[in-house]
Write a protein that binds this DNA or RNA. Structure first.
Lengths: 186, 186
DNA sequence: TTGATTTATAGACAAATGTCCTCTTTGACA
DNA sequence: TGTCAAAGAGGACATTTGTCTATAAATCAA
């Protein structure tokens, strides 16, 4: 799975992907355990093999807001904290028992500083992350609550099946009460 | 101004910046003129020297939503369209008489394919864009309308002075009627 | 200057959404 | 298995926000 992920960038040879794989260490995480805690630095990045993760941040009022979810086949980190080196404003927590492949940020930094291919891949990742966020901005900005839910149903039906509703509501920027209403079709 | 911009990445020599400058062509644009039209491909990127630009997209209902604003000292393009090569979903329009420095996308693509420094700079730009969007997500997701307006007042007071309110309202994802109420302090 | 357009405010009302609370179901686990 | 916590639905009501409309002020072009 991780091989396909790195192949998809279309720049690495089989041998290089062998080497890439060797940088990653397998780790198992139990439900509700935290991979990265708000306020700490992001020193490693994970590739999700199994399970679902949730990223959330805590407002000044203490309320937790769900920023996003991570599914198998994709990278997981507090990307802003990874980029900046500053303490993370997000917490990454497993919603189910999970399995990840972990790589040190220092390894990645070193690779990118010394390899054009890696620099290229990390640029591509940054761009992909940007495009994904733009889509969310469009949604948060112009859609009403029920449209948001329907868009989610269409584009990411797996979200609805696997994730507790109050997290989804928070992700969509609405209250759980209201999401319940929407689901009822009112 | 554009020299400072490229110097800020900390990788280019004075001579290289001379060369970079030579890729850019000056262009004047009148108020309300369009730099990039929704549905067309993004073949050039601009550095804003003077004036304010607005990026907006049109929903299936025909309503225009303001995605962001561009001020002097920063790059302007439909970044998603620039990345993907697909037709832009945004229109870039001058809100005032403006002056920009334009570079061809093909030039930039060629530079990044052949230069580690450029690849590095473009990666950095992508990351900066990501971080800025994340901040907006946080705001759109968890803040109420009046908080959004106050945050805007604090962080980007220049927005409020220079930009018509209905664009600001659209940018914040609220109606102009409501923004007017908020300003009145109700 | 004059007239037209844009910009900002605001009243009245309807619709959307949030808060607080309760109840039922489900699932985890001791 | 029994108990407890988590998850989801929903009633009642308050608040927020949107829509439609009108008006005044500001801006701009002829």
């Amino acid at each position: 799975m991780i091989r396909e992920f790195f192949k998809s960038f279309g720049v690495f040879s089989e041998e290089e992907i062998d080497e890439i794989e060797s940088y990653f260490t397998k780790r198992s995480i139990k439900k509700n355990e935290v991979f990265l805690q708000e306020g700490t630095k992001c020193t490693e990045i994970a590739f999700v093999v199994k399970g679902i993760y949730r990223s959330y941040y805590t407002g000044s009022d203490g309320v937790e807001t769900t920023y996003c979810f991570c599914f198998p086949g994709s990278l997981m980190s507090s990307y802003s904290a990874f980029i900046s080196g500053e303490p993370s404003s997000e917490t990454l927590q497993a919603l189910t028992d999970a399995e990840i492949l972990v790589v040190k940020k220092t390894d990645l930094d070193q690779l990118s500083e010394n390899s054009f291919k890696w620099m290229h891949v990390l640029k591509t990742i940054a761009e992909q992350q940007y495009v994904a966020l733009e889509q969310r901005i469009f949604q948060l900005q112009r859609e009403g609550a029920s449209e948001k839910y329907n868009t989610l149903l269409e584009r990411q039906p797996i979200y609805i099946q696997k994730i507790p509703l109050h997290y989804l509501a928070s992700y969509l920027g609405i209250s759980q009460r209201h999401l319940s209403r929407i689901r009822k079709g009112v």
